[in-house]
Amino acid sequence: MTEGEHSMEDRARIFAPVLAQVKRLADEGKPVAIAIDGRCGSGKTWLSGLIGDRFPCNILHMDDFYLPFGRRAQGWEAVPGGNMDFRRLRDELLIPIRAGQAAVYRAYLCPEDRFGEARLLPVRNLTVVEGSYSRHPSVGEAYDLTIFLTCSREVQRRRLAQREGSRYAAFEERWIPMEENYFRCFDVEGTSHMVVDTGGAY
């Protein structure tokens, strides 16, 4: 068995309870929204892709909802979620989606500090919002299922070092401390419907 095959087996096993809950919601036949929050390197994007492979759904990435630098408040790094545009996520997308309506949005392109082309989200009963800060209180009670993914610091370091290469230092110095502050302030892990440790997944 190759490493890749082993990883796929382990991931399917670890996420089986999540997929069962997603299926339960999808079978209800009404608009529902799911949040996948958790630590960077824990597999949020991978899980959203797995759900997208198995269920017709819209997938939203929190990376598309950063605030432009010119709109961030002074000292934003000390404010949990101070770099995110929660109002746009809530008003332009989650409210119409949960009302069974199509929605249009423009992803923010952080490296270029500009917005991309308009994207249409068709009417679908299942919407997945993945990424850190998706559970911020500013979004409100927008989700029917909330999932928190976690892993040990050792696993996180290994995964991020492999994924980010030379950019890894920025995660240690800035992004991980900001995330952990957000998790603590709002007890994101403790208030999630499901918590999954992905340490054995890959």
Rank of each mutant, 00 (worst) to 15 (best):
V196H: 02
I147F: 04
I59R: 14
L94G: 05
R114N: 14
L126I: 02
R72N: 04
I51P: 00
G52M: 07
R135S: 09
G190S: 10
T198I: 00
R106H: 09
P137V: 12
I97L: 15
R106W: 03
V128T: 11
R24H: 14
R54L: 14
P137Y: 14
G43C: 00
R106P: 01
D63F: 01
R72S: 04
A170L: 06
R124D: 12
R135P: 04
C40P: 04
L93P: 01
C185F: 05
L47W: 08
V104W: 05
K44F: 12
R184D: 13
R98N: 15
S152T: 15
E112P: 06
V18I: 13
I176A: 01
S48V: 07
R72A: 10
R11L: 09
G4I: 15
R13M: 08
R153K: 15
F55E: 09
N181E: 12
R71Y: 04
G29Y: 08
K44A: 14
F55W: 01
A201S: 12
D63R: 04
L47G: 06
V104I: 10
G75C: 07
S7D: 13
E141Q: 14
T45P: 02
I14G: 03
P68L: 10
A102V: 03
D113T: 09
H136L: 11
D91M: 08
I14T: 10
A107F: 03
V188Y: 04
Y105G: 08
R106F: 04
L89I: 14
E154L: 14
A99S: 09
W76K: 00
A142K: 00
V129S: 10
D113N: 12
I147D: 00
K23C: 08
N58V: 13
V22E: 01
E172I: 08
S166D: 10
P122S: 04
A142C: 08
E164Q: 09
V32F: 01
E189K: 14
F15Q: 01
T198E: 01
A201L: 02
I51V: 13
A201T: 05
R54K: 15
L25N: 03
N58D: 12
N83M: 01
R24D: 14
G116D: 11
R114W: 13
R163S: 09
H6P: 07
N181D: 09
G49H: 13
R98I: 11
A102M: 05
P122R: 03
R90T: 01
I34F: 12
V22W: 01
V188C: 03
P56Q: 06
V195Y: 05
C151H: 03
F186M: 03
R158F: 00
P68C: 10
Y168M: 02
A107D: 07
E5H: 08
M1P: 11
N83A: 10
G43D: 00
Y66H: 15
